[in-house]
Simulated scan of single mutants.
Amino acid sequence: MTQTLALIEEATKKSGLIWVQGPTGPSRALWHVWHEGAAHLVGGPGEQPLADLGLADGARAAVTVRSKDKGGRLVTWHARVSELAARGEEWSAAVAELKGKRLNAPDAERIEERIEERWATECRVLRLEPEGSTVELPSGALTAQPLPTPAVTRMPMPAALPRLLRGRRRGRQG
Rank of each mutant, 00 (worst) to 15 (best):
G88C: 02
V135T: 07
G140R: 12
P148G: 09
A144D: 02
E112A: 06
S139V: 04
E89G: 04
D107K: 03
S133P: 06
S92V: 07
A105W: 01
R154F: 13
V152A: 15
L142N: 12
Q48S: 10
L74G: 04
S82G: 05
T134M: 11
A120R: 06
E90I: 04
L50F: 10
L126M: 07
T134D: 09
A141K: 13
G54P: 13
M157G: 08
S67V: 04
C123G: 02
G58M: 12
R154W: 09
S67T: 08
G132F: 08
E112G: 03
I111G: 00
A96I: 01
V125F: 08
G54L: 05
G71L: 11
S92H: 08
T64V: 13
K68N: 11
V81F: 09
R73V: 10
E83A: 09
P148W: 15
M155S: 14
L84R: 09
Q145E: 11
G140C: 09
A120L: 02
A93N: 06
P146E: 06
M155E: 13
Q145A: 12
K99Y: 00
V95Y: 10
T134L: 14
L137M: 11
P138V: 05
A141T: 10
P146C: 10
T149A: 14
D107Q: 04
A61I: 10
S92N: 11
A62M: 09
L103V: 04
V152Y: 15
E112I: 01
K101V: 02
V65W: 14
G71T: 06
K101W: 00
E113N: 03
S133R: 05
G100H: 01
P156M: 12
T153C: 15
V81I: 08
R110E: 01
L103K: 10
G132R: 14
A51Y: 15
A105R: 03
E129S: 07
S82T: 06
R87P: 01
E109R: 10
E136P: 07
L98I: 09
R110G: 05
P106H: 02
